[in-house]
Design a protein around this nucleic acid. Structure first.
Length: 207
DNA sequence: CGCTAGATGAGA
DNA sequence: CTCATCTAGCGA
């Protein structure tokens, strides 16, 4: 968080692919917990069959009624909240899904939420396992439906901070867990970082 | 290691 | 019915 500021709304007023790429290396600040963003995915409001906007009128309405930088949090597979930020006002609207974090502050609190049954006798899970997936990180950070629709450009304690350090190395790769529009290389990860949800595939490229 | 089944509910 | 997931349990 040193040398970084809250990302302004203008950051999210560009196309979702640019935003997703540049969020890798920025920091998510969520109350007392913070994490370096090491993995994201872009979803575009048009031409992307994997985006909720493709098949959900309610999501298209959400895009129309909110401004860039709004949290889009939804419930998937009956048990996981997934955390996105609305990107709007550039050449293309859409969302960036936050997929993995490297914990930088509040690791004990994150562990308590992720592994509540852990006692003093059991070995703690490694920090790489705490936020290495979109469902895992919402549990760890305490993100849920109560945060759907909040503005992430106002309160520095619930916001993205950046920019990323210029030395960050990034890869682009195909997105994970989707069957439609599956070939778009719109997953972005920090190269050589063990906190990501899955290792890059052979089709990953430096970006 | 890798692979798979099953949990569990909202949206259309 | 599908789904932007995860974990336990199984076999090699």
């Amino acid at each position: 968080m040193l040398n970084t500021k809250i990302l302004p709304r203008t950051f999210f007023q560009r196309d979702p692919i640019t935003c997703a790429r540049e969020l890798v290396g920025c920091e998510l600040v969520w109350n007392s917990c913070t994490g370096l963003i090491v993995e994201t995915e872009a979803y575009t409001a048009t031409g992307d069959e994997a985006s909720h906007t493709f098949s959900r009128p309610s999501t298209r309405l959400f895009v129309a009624q909110h401004q860039a930088g709004t949290a889009y949090v939804y419930f998937n597979y009956g048990m996981y909240w997934l955390f996105n930020v609305l990107v709007k006002g550039g050449p293309e609207d859409g969302f960036v899904l936050i997929r993995a974090l490297q914990p930088t502050r509040g690791l004990p609190a994150m562990r308590r939420r992720r592994f509540p049954k852990t006692d003093a006798a059991t070995r703690p899970k490694p920090p790489e396992a705490v936020c290495s997936g979109p469902g895992k990180l919402t549990i760890a950070m305490g993100i849920g439906g109560q945060h759907h629709g909040i503005d992430l450009c106002l309160n520095p304690s619930m916001a993205f901070h950046g920019p990323a350090h210029p030395s960050i190395r990034r890869l682009s790769d195909i997105r994970i867990g989707i069957s439609k529009s599956a070939h778009f290389p719109w997953r972005f990860l920090a190269a050589e970082n063990p906190f990501v949800s899955a290792r890059p595939t052979p089709s990953a490229r430096i970006c």
